[in-house]
Design a protein around this nucleic acid. Structure first.
Length: 321
DNA sequence: CTTATTTGACCATC
DNA sequence: GATGGTCAAATAAG
């Protein structure tokens, strides 16, 4: 189909455009006297990583334009990358102690790193695409948010029970622009990106679909389809089984695992202690994607650990104030 | 039958 | 007490 080609091109353009935009944002951050150090630090790091991701992805598209995309007809754009502010206040209970949060894993809700993204759904284009970010999400709740017109949907990784994947995300439609969704990711994916591979056939779409086509949404309809950028996390086996990957791969994924690994290797920049399972903390892969391939990514080690002092990462400890 | 979604209740934090 | 996040029983869908 011709469209595919176009989409690829669009994807490529999107990536590059996004990279440019991110670079611009980064410039702003750098130029700015920098008010609050911590958040901006984190933000900058994120931006850098995402820029890298964009370029990686764009390059890979160019290299093998044929193989890699699942291309989706989605032209949604990332409006903005990171916004932590709105949520921040709700999340970190003890901001001051937050350092300790990692410590008390059992008790309070762990302060998992989280980041938000705004996604715009192109009115015309996105009538159908699944909102896939490459992960399977299961909705576990919906809540009306004060001051928000639309309810916020809560999703968790489908493989949570199976693999103990703690990744979650929140999807909220913007009050005034129904075309914009704010998607907040929390936690890390410990699962092996299961059904990330979206085939044209539409495999994984089911899960997200729920969001999009609801038969009955109580107050409002949910999201149309959005293309979102996602975070993939590859973290050390929580279970402690070295073979967990095998298990998983045998169960659902096949090709995916491979791609992940390769992605993993791409990141030389980052030092990932894959061998050392610490806690739940994982590595984040931020894949910027317009298309989907989750392959590309960057990781952020969020370190609660002593061991790990990423040079370039967030020194902030992965939480926000 | 299995699995995902819905929805109100419950819990934690502010 | 208010708000947001999660749980879990019931329900719907495949």
């Amino acid at each position: 189909m011709e469209k595919m080609g176009e989409w690829k091109q669009m994807s490529l353009i999107n990536e590059l455009t996004q990279g440019r935009e991110l670079a611009r944002q980064l410039q702003d951050y750098l130029n700015a006297p920098s008010s609050s150090s911590s958040s901006s630090h984190e933000t900058r790091e994120l931006i850098v990583l995402r820029i890298q991701a964009s370029y990686e992805k764009a390059l890979s598209m160019l290299n093998c334009n044929t193989s890699l995309l699942t291309d989706q007809p989605q032209s949604s754009e990332l409006v903005i990358g990171l916004s932590e502010s709105p949520l921040s206040h709700s999340v970190s209970p003890r901001s001051e102690d937050s350092d300790h949060d990692f410590m008390d894993q059992d008790k309070k809700r762990k302060t998992l790193p989280r980041w938000a993204q705004k996604v715009r759904v192109a009115p015309g284009a996105a009538l159908e695409g699944p909102l896939d970010d490459g992960f399977s999400w299961r909705k576990y709740g919906q809540k009306d948010i004060l001051g928000a017109k639309y309810p916020r949907g809560y999703y968790m990784c489908t493989h949570r029970n199976v693999q103990g994947c703690l990744a979650r995300k929140q999807v909220q439609r913007s009050d005034e622009d129904p075309t914009i969704f704010e998607i907040t990711y929390r936690g890390t994916h410990t699962c092996n990106l299961a059904s990330q591979v979206k085939l044209p056939l539409g495999i994984s779409e089911n899960q997200e679909r729920g969001t999009s086509n609801q038969q009955r949404l109580s107050s409002s309809m949910a999201a149309p389809n959005i293309k979102v950028e996602d975070n993939l996390v590859f973290s050390p086996p929580v279970m402690g089984n070295s073979n967990f990957a095998e298990n998983v791969s045998s169960s659902f994924i096949s090709p995916a695992a491979t791609s992940v690994m390769s992605a993993d290797r791409l990141l030389d920049n980052v030092d990932i202690p894959n061998s050392e399972p610490q806690q739940l903390t994982g590595v984040y892969l931020a894949a910027a994607s317009s298309t989907d391939s989750l392959t590309v990514g960057l990781d952020f080690p969020f370190g609660s650990d002593d061991q790990f002092h990423p040079n370039f990462t967030f020194d902030n400890n992965g939480y926000f104030s």
